[in-house]
């Protein structure tokens, strides 16, 4: 075993263009939202996101238009937090910037 501690910025630098990310938590619960916000400060793009119920941390990557594909069963923030605004913004409309692969 060796020491793997690093700064948030250093960890975010591990993510490269086009990577598939499994982002933990559920809806608004224990979702790594601050890590995703740190990723929005990096020039990384064309990310793919997967999870049974992607939540806020995944939504942030669609809000920043850095993710272009989501593989999921359910994508929302649940309860009072409502729908996932970033996912909707990037996937809805006549010219969506991201695609949803439900049931994958």
């Amino acid at each position: 075993m060796y020491d793997k501690t690093m700064s948030l910025s250093q960890a975010a630098d591990l993510i490269k263009d086009g990577m598939l990310l499994a982002i933990g938590g559920n809806g608004m619960h224990r979702t790594p939202s601050i890590f995703s916000l740190a990723l929005t400060k990096k020039p990384v793009k064309e990310l793919k996101v997967c999870g049974a119920a992607p939540g806020l941390a995944s939504d942030i990557l669609f809000a920043s238009f850095q993710a272009d594909t989501a593989y999921f069963g359910f994508f929302g923030l649940e309860n009072e937090a409502g729908l996932a605004p970033g996912m909707r913004k990037s996937m809805e409309g006549d010219n969506p910037k991201a695609k949803a692969i439900e049931g994958s």
Partner: peptide
């Protein structure tokens, strides 16, 4: 591969 000490890392969530 990486460990980041990040209190409040799930905010504004739970």
């Amino acid at each position: 591969e990486a460990v980041v000490e990040l209190p409040g890392g799930a905010k504004p969530g739970i």
